[in-house]
Design a protein around this nucleic acid. Structure first.
Lengths: 148, 148
DNA sequence: CTCTTGATGAAAATGGGTCTCATTTTTGAT
DNA sequence: ATCAAAAATGAGACCCATTTTCATCAAGAG
């Protein structure tokens, strides 16, 4: 969970996109680079605003398109951060990932990871008559600050 | 998971609402009864459509209001069924609940429950500096039919 | 270099979900 | 039972995240 740009992920993602048959495009690349700069879920509109003002401005449609493609390829994870708005964050190639506890009151997201949780899900996925490719766990409640 | 109306839950919910200080109201009661008739997540708009045409028609605002109040009291569980639309389903008084595997392709929801998963989440909730009141687990992938 | 096709952005369209407000019910107090 | 205060309700306007449209541009095959 460093705070600097995860250029390793960016390269990984760009390569995967090319491999998937997508052409090289400025907008999509900009979205990938922006995601590489964020350590936790970002809203599509946040990215849009962030990329709108750039030499060649990136359009909102391109942001959404890129996010969808990245999600499809398993390069980013999508989750609902507040009623009606989704957040996106990169998925590390290794497979390790975290989940989130979201405060009902202030919206703060607290990331966490837990091996036994993952184990339970993996076991379950194998036993079900359903081809599980992804999973999402969201804990809801009150964060430390809002608990009072 | 019977297919007939769960009137026990309806009574439970109505009582809880009253206990919470809400007055008796036709619209809210209608929403509770409608939820009691569904065994798995229903969309707010589905409920709206279902209740709109009734002796005293129920308005959309009332449906959303009732659902929010019910969710607040832990009587119903909310989950994102498709991009941008939430589904609601009753929570049995006992505390036992199920989660869902949602098909990326056809949207079908397959409910499931797993004790070790719940155990992992409970343990985690206790260890975190966060007051967890609810949790959501969603598995995504392809259902039996769409897997081919 | 040229052509085909994917990529892009601006703007309009969608569509859940929320808000407002005038009106009707509930319910505690009289 | 009667009343007034407060809550509940429904229609419709409104909001806002996301999607679609479409005209234009650029990437890459040949």
């Amino acid at each position: 969970m460093s705070t600097k740009t995860d250029s390793a992920w960016a390269e990984h993602a760009l390569a995967a996109l090319q491999r998937a048959g997508y052409r090289r495009g400025g907008a999509r690349t900009a979205v990938v680079e922006a995601l590489a700069r964020h350590d936790c879920a970002v809203t599509a509109l946040d990215l849009d605003e962030e990329l709108r003002r750039r030499k060649p401005a990136v359009g909102r449609a391109s942001v959404y398109r890129a996010l969808e493609q990245l999600e499809q390829l398993g390069l980013v994870q999508r989750l609902e951060v507040t009623r009606g708005t989704a957040g996106y964050e990169r998925v590390e190639p290794g497979g390790e990932h975290h989940h989130h506890a979201i405060c009902r009151h202030c919206g703060r997201m607290v990331p966490f990871e837990d091996a036994s949780l993952e184990r339970a899900i993996a076991k379950l996925s194998g036993e079900m008559r359903f081809e599980v490719t992804d999973h999402d766990v969201v804990l809801r409640g009150l964060c430390e600050r809002c608990a009072n």
